[in-house]
Design a protein around this nucleic acid. Sequence first.
DNA 1: CTTCCCCTTATAAACGTTTCCATAGATGGT
DNA 2: ACCATCTATGGAAACGTTTATAAGGGGAAG
Lengths: 346, 346
Amino acid sequence: MDKVGIKEIAAKANVSIATVSYVLNGTRNVRPQTKERVLKVIEELKYKPNNIAKSLKSKKTNTIGVIAEDITVFNVPEIIDGINEYADRYDLHIVLTNLRLHKRVGHNYSNIGAFRKYAENAVSDLLAKQVDGIIYIGIHPRDVTGLIDPGDTPIVYTYCYTKNELSIQYNDEQASYDAIEYLYKKGHHRIAVITGLMDSIPSRLRFNGYFKAVTDFELPFEPQLIKVGNWGLESGLKLTKELLELADPPTALLVMNDVMAAGSLRAARSMGVRVPEDLSLVGFDNREFSDYLNPRITTMNLPLHEMGYSSMRSLLRIIGGDEEHAAEQVPLCVLIERESVAPLVD
Amino acid sequence: MDKVGIKEIAAKANVSIATVSYVLNGTRNVRPQTKERVLKVIEELKYKPNNIAKSLKSKKTNTIGVIAEDITVFNVPEIIDGINEYADRYDLHIVLTNLRLHKRVGHNYSNIGAFRKYAENAVSDLLAKQVDGIIYIGIHPRDVTGLIDPGDTPIVYTYCYTKNELSIQYNDEQASYDAIEYLYKKGHHRIAVITGLMDSIPSRLRFNGYFKAVTDFELPFEPQLIKVGNWGLESGLKLTKELLELADPPTALLVMNDVMAAGSLRAARSMGVRVPEDLSLVGFDNREFSDYLNPRITTMNLPLHEMGYSSMRSLLRIIGGDEEHAAEQVPLCVLIERESVAPLVD
DNA sequence: CTTCCCCTTATAAACGTTTCCATAGATGGT
DNA sequence: ACCATCTATGGAAACGTTTATAAGGGGAAG
């Protein structure tokens, strides 16, 4: 099974390689009769194009490099799926680099320096592969400014924060604000919050939203209703207990991720507090399991698929030279109503 | 910022392009002094290699095509992560094709025919990109034999079933057998089972394991203890209720995925049956949330990372021409003990 | 019957590398 | 002093395409 290229086709069809190329790409008119003949030979010889050669000449690979800081982080696959949807439409291919952040440096981002060289390598490799552009999928809590240098290959960031570079990101602050507004409209006034780690950007932004809403709706601001968690279930459990042991416990609780919210549920159960009758609970992330818990918890959905899709669209705009219109409006987070919130009746 | 290639380096360093290539790859001895000079120019001009050209000449892309039937299916990212770990070690790159099976044809695999052309396209594209090999990540319940034709590009399948092709897959039957054995050793004899859809291969295999174990340990075989579910939470809930309403309900229950197991928990709670005191429960998949439920459920872990890793290793063996030793031993599933099983005391 | 133009097809250069082969100079054994 | 080796380097072909340019032939217009 010898390699059959355009040359072999040309020989067998008694035309020049140029002609074969023209029928292959429709770049130029070719007499129907000739075309037919060439096509037949292509069929016969089971010609398979070689995009490497094509790319070399045309300086276009139709390939986008996707760098994921960690593909096993729960939200990332859906973002990639969004990227894929767009890529499919435009016949683009994805070369995926998984930086495996967590497996390499664990969950402590302080020694992130050691990680930088992986990121840099990934970029070099991608550039060597002549990708037409790069999408960098962070893992949310980090500002990633200056981490890598893509030269003049277009890049867009998503699911992370940047200073000057374009980053496709939903609005954390708004999301959190909306959650509080929802609770407020259900009649709740004393609303507690369990944040994530406070050196994490989304944590701060979400807290901002909480604070803004509390202010806008003239809710009492009581520091003892604010608890700083660490994103883990145990922390949700412990802090919720503390909240419930208050002399005057809150009637509602916003927890900044679903994992901690699962902890809240456990705490409530252990103390005989009923959710939602005695305590309304809203989570964050709309993780699949939030629907499996008991009660099914009301939580804030993140527009992940759209973020992926938008990143791709932005990137292609930049590649197309339209840098100005690259910024994208990402759909808002929407609250998924389930069973963990009840209106407050006095 | 003109493109700087090997040619520009050669000119500026007063050597031939051949020499530049030799210092770049260390393919040949070059006088230290010359080497130095070339390296300096490379540095100065910020030379970035072009792997496209390299691949064209060398007929090696160092790229593996990964076709995922659906990257949003929960187990897939971890498999990819395993692939990545191996790829990193050997400086291989991944071009990822996500077939988006569920978003395209939903969860009803009967109209899978329409899906075939996506798979075929994916393969053609990958071949055009001259990948050195292909890994096909299915989504488990399907036999994928004959779906695609990779020509003579090496391929290995994983997380799906095949007839003659090499597929890296853990042992469903064994896993299920082990779960029953575990329950048996905890003193349980009347063990019920909730299967998945019975047109799914893992469902049948797992049932096989159950049946074998029941036979080996001389447990009573009572058909009313066998329920056929559909993988969804509601089905777990409903069937568990039926089981618990039996005149003589089982003391233990093996549920063939964690989602249905979440349903079982809900059923038990709604009927005032305590887990594990009144009913021992073991799930399947070791989904992250199985640790968040109440009680935390004991479940069967799948060696996903290893499957990815092994797939890659097998593939590289085939690429290296060692077809015989390509088959891999995939680590067994291991049961993760948590809180949902208690020993039976009479 | 020229002349011009258009339509179709061919020739060959180019893309950025690797690598085979050749060459020039140095070394060393006789 | 000569030939055989050996080392360091250069020249050029090749990988499979695309595409600029050229060329041949036919028809319409003069």
